[in-house]
Amino acid sequence: MQDTLTALVAKAQTDLATLKSRPEFEAAKARLVGPNGELTGLMKQMGTVPKEQRPAMGKLINETKTRLQELLDGALRMIEAGELQAQLGPAIDPTLPSPDAGPGTYHPLTLVREEMCRILRKVGFTVADGPEVETEYYCFDALNTPADHPARDAQDTFYFPETAHFGNVSKRTPGEKYLLRTHTSSVQIRTMLKGAPPIRIVSPGRTYRRDTTDATHSANFHQLECLYVDKNVTVRDLKALLDYIFASLLGKETKTRFRPHYFGYTEPSFEVDLSAKHLPKVKKEWIEIGGCGMVDPVVFAGVGYDPEVWSGYAFGMGLERLAMLLYGIDDIRYFYQNDLRFLKQFA
């Protein structure tokens, strides 16, 4: 009996090691320890064992049973490991490119616009928006640009026929013509008419000039303007804002300077120059980057703000120009061609 048990364990050890699948395993398990299995058969023979040998024999059978269970467990673990292994393909080549598309990219004009908005957000400017189709009042009259001003000429501004009607662009007076805004300053007017001071907004957006498209001109382009209206706003505050913006954007070594200029809607007015020789393709010492000034009292009076009480500044610049400067791009048309080899450079 003892020999039979030892032989059973030895045979099980050999057989179980060759098992490959669960059905084989289940068959082997039934053969060994199932109700009709070999071990069960041997246990049934216990009755034939002399009484005095029974305790030793019982112990031996239990040990055999434990041993067989260990062997079965081991075999099952082997099979399970084999099954998991079978789920894997061959080893990967980590150097192959991912066949998935991506990553996506933001357009450089978006990147520059959002960066400017973040910089301005830190000093309390929120982003305002307004229509691209405007009326003469919001684009010109309210900004102190008289009816015979050259900027309003059909040679420079896109107009719509008198029959055109825009359901969600409000007119101030019935006779006004619709046009494509030539600057984002119209958003300042709409914002001031809608709310009460103090106001601190930045309005980025698309603008239009009736112009030849070449390396530096485009029929539509983008501007970004800031407007701050409060009590006691000064020229020095305006200069401080410009210094802050460009130091944040281009680094502390960036300098700005004001040159007196003329705009109808600010007084005094300035052009803003940058000195940023650390940027690529900047050859001149000073580069013009935008215009600014103190909001003209006429503009305040037009929107119903008392110019004796309220003062403010406005600043505007071209986003393409800024992006060209930041990235060293030398042709404005690249922004509108969307060649992926261009777009993928800025993400």
């Binding site: 000093v123 309390g124 929120t126 982003v127 305002a128 928006d129 401080a240 802050y244 004001f258 007196p260």
Partner: peptide, 23 residues
């Protein structure tokens, strides 16, 4: 001389607002 406007820290007394819904 507009190049002599003295430097200053940006003053930004808080105005509470959020960006336009369209933005």
């Amino acid at each position: 001389g507009t190049d002599k406007i003295p430097a200053a820290v940006v003053s930004s007394p808080g105005l509470i607002g959020d960006d336009d819904p369209l933005v």
